[in-house]
């Protein structure tokens, strides 16, 4: 993917983003679809340009053996219904994708103009502590921007954000906004800090990435409980100077609308031109030295 491919992409003007902090029902795709459609009607009435849902928003998170049962293939009627509802506002929603090889992915669909335009497959699956994603999911192997008509969006899924190269690759693609959909469990209630420790970690990461990458970051985390594990919510918008511009409640479902201002992006990038001064060739040279025998391919990871 080269920069010239994007030469015709329009610069970001204003983008009205709806953050859908939902509480998906585990395995109940029919219910979750209806909730998505209802929120998308709300998005249309509010003249939103883009609605962002959490990770696995159509299926729920701790699916275990249900992963196989709720998986969707291209042409799935549920995806078609979301696509149909994307004529006015674009949509980013989470689902389980099954490919021809039978692999299941923790996926994020980008729907626009009545179509499923692109899919991001979670690259950094999480399997430690309470998580067991690598048991059920295959990992994605790339970070590609969603080319929207009004914005270039860098999609991430939860743990992707905790690995520096993920957002960095979107930065190289010069995205207007990084959109991180999450199903992040709420944890850490010790008195040493204010609020959830998990929420503090997220804020630190989101603000640092926005500041360093000079981009808007929209974070949409789900709420609700699955067998005693509560999801934190606290969805937010961070501006390209690292300021939190909007924050939703922890633990409670809801929607919020925020208008991203393209001029803010331009000003922040002029004042501190980190993309201009970035030298990806230094990174490439460093990787070539540190990873000898590495041939610009991620196929070797399949052996894991």
């Amino acid at each position: 993917m080269t920069r010239s491919e994007y030469s015709s992409a329009p610069p970001l003007k204003n983008l009205r983003v709806l953050l859908a902090q939902t509480n998906p029902r585990l395995g109940d795709v029919g219910h979750n679809l209806e909730e998505h459609l209802s929120i998308l009607r709300q998005a249309r009435e509010a003249r939103a340009d883009l609605a962002i849902f959490p990770e696995l928003s159509l299926t729920g998170y701790f699916l275990k053996d249900q992963t196989f049962e709720v998986a969707m293939e291209p042409g799935d009627p549920t995806l078609a219904r979301i696509a149909e509802a994307s004529r006015d506002a674009s949509v980013i929603a989470g689902f389980v994708e099954r490919d021809r090889g039978g692999r299941l992915y923790n996926a994020l669909g980008f729907f626009e103009g009545g179509e499923l335009r692109a899919v991001h497959r979670k690259v950094h699956l999480v399997s430690y502590g309470m998580f067991d994603e690598t048991r059920d999911f295959a990992a994605g192997d790339s970070f590609r921007a969603f080319e929207g008509e009004k914005a270039r969006i860098g999609p991430l899924l939860c743990e992707d954000m905790w690995h520096l190269p993920s957002a960095y690759l979107h930065f190289l693609d010069e995205v207007d906004v990084i959109s991180c959909s999450s199903a992040s469990p709420a944890r850490g209630v010790e008195a040493g800090g204010q609020g959830l420790a998990s929420e503090r970690s997220w804020e630190l990461i989101l603000r640092a990435q926005a500041l360093l990458l000079r981009t808007f970051v929209v974070y949409v985390d789900r709420v609700g409980w699955e067998d005693g594990i509560g999801f934190g919510g606290g969805s937010c918008v961070v501006g390209p100077t690292g300021d939190v511009l909007l924050r939703m409640d922890a633990l409670e479902p809801g929607t919020a609308i925020f208008e991203l201002d393209g001029n803010e992006l331009r000003r922040a990038r002029f004042e501190t031109p980190l993309r201009r001064d970035e030298r990806p060739s230094v990174l490439a040279a460093g990787l070539a030295v540190k990873l000898p025998g590495w041939h610009l391919s991620t196929e070797g990871d399949d052996a894991r």
């Binding site: 029902r25 585990l26 109940d28 275990k64 053996d65 699955e226 067998d227």
Partner: peptide, 11 residues
């Protein structure tokens, strides 16, 4: 063991 569902299965 390998019949793995949460208690909140299709709650």
């Amino acid at each position: 063991t390998d019949f793995r569902y949460l208690r909140d299965w299709m709650r």
